[in-house]
Design a binder for these strands. Structure first.
Lengths: 345, 345
DNA sequence: TCAAATGATGATACCGGTTACATCTCATCT
DNA sequence: AGATGAGATGTAACCGGTATCATCATTTGA
């Protein structure tokens, strides 16, 4: 590997001149510059950027903690991050944490050991461990799933309002028994969406029925399983609102397997508006989130912090959009014909 | 940021001793080690790994060039890479190239500028530009989409055999007019799958009909569009084989929109076995690929190269599996019962 | 008892850039 | 002409580790 000293020797100048010729060409004379560039060419010089990063103390790397990259929504978020980072000359170090806090912590250490300048967390944890006493702003941004008492900059959706909006849509269609398939237990995201759901019920004077809440984990399988549970209830729901699209797609399948029609017998709604949502049968009513924008905003915020342009930790709230498709429709007129028992496959 | 010299001073030893106490504890006496560790604790010393990487010339970073991370299949591959890399102490630098060769080249430069040790390419390009004369092994592995005359180590599927296998399945079901929805034009992947399709046709004595080939780009939309074209043919196909599952899902929707039933009127098959394939209506017959294994194998191969354990560029071929679900079924009794076609099963 | 071997530790060069400061050359001004 | 300053270039410190070699103390062996 040729280095700057080899170039300097060949060009007959000092290393400082070579460095200047490449970094601040205005400071060197035209003919020196020419000599240097020729020498660079001749020895095939490529600067060792590791040395630069070491010297400058800036790596221009950003660590991203993702629960699972193999998730359609996160994939879009990452895509947005990548774009924004590339534009600013940063690279992304991707960490698949599988939700494991030890793995998170080990990657977060990359910031402390100067392997990365900052960190983006897509989960509501603080991977640095307990918050330091001094509230000096750690180079971290929290996106998507956010804890409210967070002292970090965050990018989030108003999940409560979004869930309320969807629930209101269902109520307006005449539904009274609206089930909710939840995400992981302690997720603030689930908590907020649940709150929005309850807000809408309360506003419409509908009693909250614990039985209509079903656990899930954002997977297709868990949606499928949840639907089975819900349909087996003595009084099954006429609408099922899922906290993400994957679960909704699982629900759709299970509902159809029961011989019920969507939306005539049961309405189904999702959350995220992943690309597959529009290609469901029937196409899925859902909440669209600007996934790529989550990513780009988070990256830009982080870079602002790193470059000292941010005084206070901002909270950015991105807009959602209710996307109405064919999976939701008017509640069935029937109070209950006679199939309250719910037939199996 | 505290450094090793601060620790040395506090512990009353030399920097060399501190380094040894942390790296090769056996070389240091017990009480010195204790002093050092206490000092490390006291100043909160975290080694600057950037300095280590610079000194050692090894970054332990691997660049991954992905056409689009927001692709279900690639997301799984990346997940497998991440896992394998983490186990060996490497990090992944993710690059979303959008298929742009300039972007690819700019990321490939990270290897040449010592920001990464090696590179994994998921497309059949050589991002380093024209191959160097000396066939010294560049630290690169090519996975998924592979050019055959490649001098790099590769990890791939026998796409030709897989496509042949699927086509044979359709032929066995009595289909004679089998359409193929292709991937991007110049992709070797498309070329191989097409060849396998033709192999099966030839073996079964079915004439190849150019009209039944439809362009696509691996997106849901392109599948939808392709189906529209195919169904409008004077003699539409009775089976549609798509080069990936997304397109197949798009096809399924379009076919159903035409009022045709799957598989009674038209069979549809995909490729990849993404998670959504099993949740289609009807569930999709497809070819399963070990996506995560693609990733882990590629990473392990690359690390073998980097650590000099590999003499010749190996070609690894991973197994596929024909996954039969409900989207394929017997060919409909032909509108024209004339027996030009020949034998059924 | 002295030489040689062993073990523990220290001093410092080194990796490859950047950059503060020094030096040198001219041109300009009074 | 001498002083001043601008412009071009060189010298070397520096970033923070690692590793080589030197040094010194202690033990072992003949």
């Amino acid at each position: 590997m040729s280095n700057i000293r080899a170039v300097a020797e060949l060009a007959g100048v000092s290393v400082a001149t070579v460095s200047r010729a490449l970094q601040q060409p205005d400071l060197v004379s035209a003919k020196t510059k020419a000599k240097v560039l020729a020498a660079v060419e001749e020895v095939g010089y490529k600067p060792n950027l590791m040395a630069v990063k070491f010297r400058s103390g800036k790596t221009h790397n950003l660590v991203v903690l993702v629960p699972t990259v193999a998730n359609v929504f996160f994939a879009r978020v990452i895509s947005g991050m990548q774009q924004a980072a590339a534009e600013k000359g940063y690279s992304l170090l991707l960490a698949n944490t599988q939700g494991d806090q030890d793995i998170e912590a080990s990657y977060a250490k990359m910031v402390q050991t100067s392997q990365a300048d900052g960190l983006i967390q897509l989960r509501a944890h603080n991977p640095f461990g307990e918050t330091p006493d001094d509230d000096s702003m750690l180079p971290m941004v929290n996106a998507c799933e956010v804890l409210d008492q967070q002292q970090f900059p965050t990018v989030m959706l108003d999940n409560r309002a979004a869930a309320r909006s969807m629930t209101e849509h269902l109520i307006k269609l005449g539904h009274r028994r609206i089930a909710m398939v939840k995400g992981p237990q302690r997720s603030p995201l689930t908590r907020d969406r649940l709150a929005g759901y309850q807000d809408a019920l309360t506003a419409a004077g509908i009693a909250f029925d614990e039985q209509l809440l079903c656990p899930g984990n954002f997977s297709l399988q868990s949606g499928h399983k949840a639907a089975a549970t819900l349909l087996a209830l003595p009084q099954p729901p006429t609408a099922i609102f899922c906290e993400n699209d994957e679960m909704a797609i699982g629900v759709v399948q299970r509902v159809k397997q029961s011989g019920l029609r969507i939306p005539q017998d049961v309405s189904v709604a999702g959350f995220d508006d992943i690309s597959f949502a529009a290609y469901c049968d029937p196409p899925l009513t859902t909440i669209a989130q600007p996934a790529e924008e989550f990513g780009s905003t988070a990256v830009n915020l982080l870079i602002d912090i790193l470059q000292g342009r941010l005084k206070k930790a901002p909270k950015v709230i991105l807009p959602f959009e209710l996307v109405l498709r064919a999976s939701t429709g008017p509640a069935p007129a029937t109070v209950a014909p006679s199939l309250t028992g719910g037939q199996d496959d």
